[in-house]
Computed example of a mutant assay.
Amino acid sequence: MRVDFYQLGAVPHDSVISAIAGRLTGEGQRLLVVAEDEALLARLDRQLWDQGASSFLAHGIAGGSDDARQPILLSRQVDAPNLARNLLIADGEWRDAALSFDRAFYLFDTETLEAARLAWKLLSGREGVERHYWANEDGKWVEKG
C-alpha cells in the first residue's frame, strides 16, 4: 500500500483534490475523499461540479442512494460503498483505516503539519507500506522523500 503525503503550502486543497481526482478517474479508478468538516466537503462538492463542461468530475456526497455508482465519493467516514481502492484524506487527520486501501493521498498544511509528521513516523518501517512525500515548488509537485 502506498501513502503519498502532500504538503500544501500555499496551494489550495480544492485544486490538488481536483487534479488527483481527475487523474484517477481518467485512469478508470475510483476515489473516496474523506474529511470530518462538512463545510470542506461542501466546498469540494461545488469545486468538482464547477470544473466546466469539458472537465466535470462525476461525484457524490456519501449518504445518497447512488453511492455505489459514484467514481468519486465525498464522505466523513472511511467507508467506500463505491468500492474505491484510493483514499484521499483532505483534512490532515490521519486515519489508520487508510491502510486497507491500495493507495492513500494525505493532504496537510501548516495547521496539520505536526499530525503529518506523526503519521509519517508511525508508518515508518511498517510492513507493506510505501511512503512518499511531495512538496510544491514553483507550481510543480516535487517528490522529496
Score class of each variant (00 low, 15 high):
E27V: 03
L107H: 09
W141D: 03
V16C: 12
D50M: 06
Q77F: 09
A21I: 06
Q77I: 04
Y106H: 05
D37G: 12
I20V: 08
I72S: 02
A104K: 10
E93M: 13
S15Q: 15
D37A: 15
I20E: 12
D14P: 01
P81Y: 12
F108Q: 04
A135N: 02
E130Q: 13
W49C: 07
L73D: 04
A97W: 06
R69G: 00
D14F: 01
K140F: 04
S54W: 09
D79H: 06
L24R: 01
D45H: 07
R117S: 04
A90Y: 11
H59K: 07
G128N: 11
G60Q: 11
G52K: 08
L88G: 07
D109K: 07
L31T: 03
Y6G: 02
W94F: 13
W134P: 00
K121R: 11
L113D: 14
S15A: 15
T25M: 02
Q47H: 07
A42C: 09
A135Q: 14
L31I: 10
R46N: 04
D50F: 00
E114S: 12
D37L: 09
L88K: 09
T25E: 01
L122K: 09
F101L: 11
G64E: 10
L8W: 08
Q47C: 06
R69A: 12
R85H: 14
S54V: 14
L32N: 00
G26P: 02
R117C: 09
P81S: 09
R43C: 01
A35Y: 02
D91N: 11
V3W: 00
D14Y: 03
L24A: 03
A68I: 02
R131V: 00
T112D: 09
E27R: 14
S100R: 15
L122R: 15
H132T: 11
N82Y: 04
D109S: 13
A104H: 10
L24T: 03
D66L: 03
A84D: 00
D14G: 09
A115E: 03
H13S: 13
S124C: 04
A35S: 15
A62D: 01
F108P: 00
Q70E: 14
G92R: 00
L99D: 02
D109Q: 14
R43N: 06
D14A: 11
L99F: 05
V34W: 04
P81Q: 12
Q7K: 15
A53P: 08
S55P: 06
V129L: 13
D67G: 02
R69H: 05
L8G: 01
A62N: 03
A115G: 14
G92N: 07
A68C: 06
E130I: 13
S75R: 07
N136I: 02
F5M: 05
L48F: 04
G128E: 07
S75F: 05
A21Q: 03
L99R: 11
A97K: 13
D138E: 06
W49K: 05
N86P: 08
